[in-house]
Structures are given as structure tokens and as C-alpha cells.
Simulated assay, not measured.
Amino acid sequence: MSEEPARDDNYKEVAKLTYDALLEMRRLSFGAQADYGKWLISSIFLMHGSAIGGLAFKAAATGAPPYLAAMLWFVVGLVLALASGFSAWWNFSLGAAQYDMWARPLMLFDRAAWPSTARHAGAITFTKRLAITFGVGSVLVLVIGSIHVLLAWK
């Protein structure tokens, strides 16, 4: 958070604007948390689930084909997608909690209540990187599984 305002005559105005901005960021964080989680889980599950369903359907029609082992890649992809979605949800939850800690009505009148450094900064960075790592891993596993199927078909 930025430094508290220096002049007494502007403090209440700046504090009110900052307080309102923090409440809005908290509201947006909660909204992003819900929307992102729904989109991510739906999209990645659709890709991996379709691959598993397609391979299982094809296998049922022809017996146990050699590409059936590739389904494991897509199952791992589903697990990674879940881990990515959970990490992103956790990240947005920490962000919203941070804004909630900062947006204290007392800051409108008391300079000592001005938002300080981010208490959840390390956890927010960690969960963001975790979500990205799991998400990229899920996409890579999708590509690897597809290559496995392609090579097994040849």
C-alpha cells in the first residue's frame, strides 16, 4: 500500500477514496475468484474429459487398443487442472482477505489505521505461481497425451 497522505486537510478525502477503492478491489477479487474458477475448471475438464471419453468409446468399439494407456495422461491432466483451479481460488481468496484487512473504516479518521504492508503477499505470490505451474502442466500433459495417442495409432 502507498504511503499515507501527508497533509491533514486532505487526509479524510484521500482516506475515503482509498477505503472505497479497497472495498471495490475486494468485491472484484471475489467476483474474479468465482468466474475464473468456473471457467478454468470447465475448460480444462472439457478437454481432458473429451479425450478420455473419446479414447474409451473407441476402445469399446475395437477391443483394447495400444493407445488406451494414453488415457492416464489425461487423468493426470484432470488432477493438474483441479490443482490449478484450487490454487487460483486460494490465490483470489488470499487477495480478497488482504483487501478486507486493508479496508478498515477506522482508516477514515485515524492515520494509524492506514493500510500497511501486505500480510498475505508471500502466500499470494506462492499460490499464483502454483496455479500457473499446475495449469501449464495440465496443458503440457494434454499435448503429451495427444502425441502418445498419435504415435500409438501409427
Rank of each mutant, 00 (worst) to 15 (best):
I132G: 02
K16N: 09
K58Y: 14
P65D: 12
L108A: 02
A121S: 12
V136D: 07
G95Y: 01
G95M: 09
L22K: 09
A152P: 04
A88S: 11
A32W: 05
T18P: 04
G37K: 12
E3Q: 13
E3I: 00
A32T: 03
V141D: 08
D8V: 01
H120A: 06
R119W: 05
D110I: 01
S42M: 15
N91H: 13
A69D: 15
W114T: 03
T18V: 08
K128D: 14
W39D: 03
I132T: 10
I144Q: 05
A113Q: 10
L17I: 05
L46Q: 12
K58L: 15
M101N: 03
L28A: 12
K12C: 03
G77A: 10
G31H: 06
A34P: 00
A32L: 08
G77N: 06
A6V: 14
E24K: 07
N91F: 14
A123T: 04
T133I: 03
A81T: 12
G135H: 05
A96T: 04
A69M: 11
A96R: 00
F45D: 13
G135C: 02
A103P: 02
S50V: 08
M1D: 10
T62K: 14
G31Y: 01
Y11Q: 08
H48V: 07
T117N: 10
V143F: 13
G49V: 11
L151K: 09
W114L: 09
A59Q: 14
V136F: 11
D9R: 08
V75A: 14
N91M: 15
F57G: 13
K128I: 01
W73L: 06
V14C: 00
A103T: 01
I147D: 05
V14H: 10
Y19I: 00
L40M: 11
K58N: 15
K154C: 00
S50M: 14
W114F: 07
A51Q: 14
T133L: 14
I147V: 15
W102S: 02
G137Q: 04
N91I: 03
L130P: 08
V143N: 08
E4P: 10
I144K: 03
G54L: 13
A152V: 06
H148N: 12
M1S: 13
I147T: 12
R26V: 00
T18A: 07
Y11K: 09
G135D: 04
L28V: 11
Y11F: 15
W153M: 10
S43D: 09
F74R: 10
E4L: 15
A6D: 12
W114Q: 05
A6S: 04
V139P: 00
Y11D: 05
W102R: 03
A69S: 15
W89N: 10
G137S: 10
T62D: 09
A21M: 05
I144D: 11
K38M: 07
I41R: 15
